[in-house]
Nucleic acid binder design. Sequence first.
DNA 1: GGTAAATTTATACAAATGATTAAAAAATTT
DNA 2: AAATTTTTTAATCATTTGTATAAATTTACC
Lengths: 210, 210
Amino acid sequence: MAKKKVMREMDFSTEEKIKNAARVVFQKKGLAAARTRDIAEEAGVNLALLNYYFRSKEKLFEIIMYETLTNFAKGITGIFNDENTTLEEKIGLLVEKYLEMLTNDPNIPMFILSEIRNRPKDLLEKLPAKSVLSNSVAINQFGEMAAGGEFSEKDIPHLLMNLLGLTVFPFVGKPFIMALGGLDELEFNTLMQERKKMIPLWMKTMMSVK
Amino acid sequence: MAKKKVMREMDFSTEEKIKNAARVVFQKKGLAAARTRDIAEEAGVNLALLNYYFRSKEKLFEIIMYETLTNFAKGITGIFNDENTTLEEKIGLLVEKYLEMLTNDPNIPMFILSEIRNRPKDLLEKLPAKSVLSNSVAINQFGEMAAGGEFSEKDIPHLLMNLLGLTVFPFVGKPFIMALGGLDELEFNTLMQERKKMIPLWMKTMMSVK
DNA sequence: GGTAAATTTATACAAATGATTAAAAAATTT
DNA sequence: AAATTTTTTAATCATTTGTATAAATTTACC
């Protein structure tokens, strides 16, 4: 079995090379379309090493998916549970953070959502921040604003969906949007940067529509 | 080879049964994860009949994808090129139509987008309404409003993305959203019905933020 | 009602693919 | 430096999966 301490002064250990390659290939193509041989090639490594270090393609996938989900959720819970920021500030921070993350890693949302489609039970159980979200400071702040009459209590799920949709959807539909708008990579990324300022404004106005 | 005229008074011809099953399975699981045996079973039909009526899994997939894309795009171009409606009316009609369609067929957006991810070139060429959209009446109306100072010309792509995101994203993230919100099917669908009225209002306010 | 064409079935094949194994090579320990 | 352990390689296996084929069955036609 593999031992971490054995790592020599290579750029990356074989185990790391495989994990990084698996992340790339899985996130780009999804579990079903990803071939173990694709991953081995991407890693520049013998095929049998995948099974040597990770018992199976499934195990390797689970590791990548777990890390991806955890990393993705980490940002939300941190920001949404800060007692010292207003809701408006939280939205700004969240949008800023995720637009930045997704500009660098645009495949993540599609990866997560399309795998959830294929194995909803499996993955949604492992979802961190399920009850965490509903008890978050941010949700309470939404509730307070609703109580204050800014908008209806019934609108809260909609506003959350909108925040998510406005931020994440462009990346889910990236190839579609780029083709439809005749955009290149740079133009798309520029739009995403612009949204850092715009989404918070839009959210603010949507939270005032009665 | 198959001949249409041979159809007896069955509920559905074998060819139709296969196509319907293929639509269900492909839209639910995607091309890579869909097995020809899944489709045959869903259709209640011998496996070899898939290749008898449609030469290969790929051919069958292309038919389903083409029909799905065409049907999906049909609604947009019709509404967006009507000379006799205002932009506000167009948005209302579009949102109404697509929320209705997607409530009945929630897998379509994820199906289209995830297959585009896997074969961007193939599918995006076949995309109807690529140049159609940019020359549409609706886009001109957006331009007029921008000229009138309601919002900036630079905001138009954003507003289009927002319209798409607010309408389509909930379906792309449906399992995720249902789990996070603790919603059942009925509650989710109720939210989608509510959005028929809300999205046009939100769009209206977003088109006034300067 | 018999014959030809079509549909359907059972079976099997071939390629792709995840996984295994035994031997070789490299690294570590003694 | 020898021995032991770890890592890597090449080759192969077993299953899955898309597809083909030949026989059986059903339908259409005269």
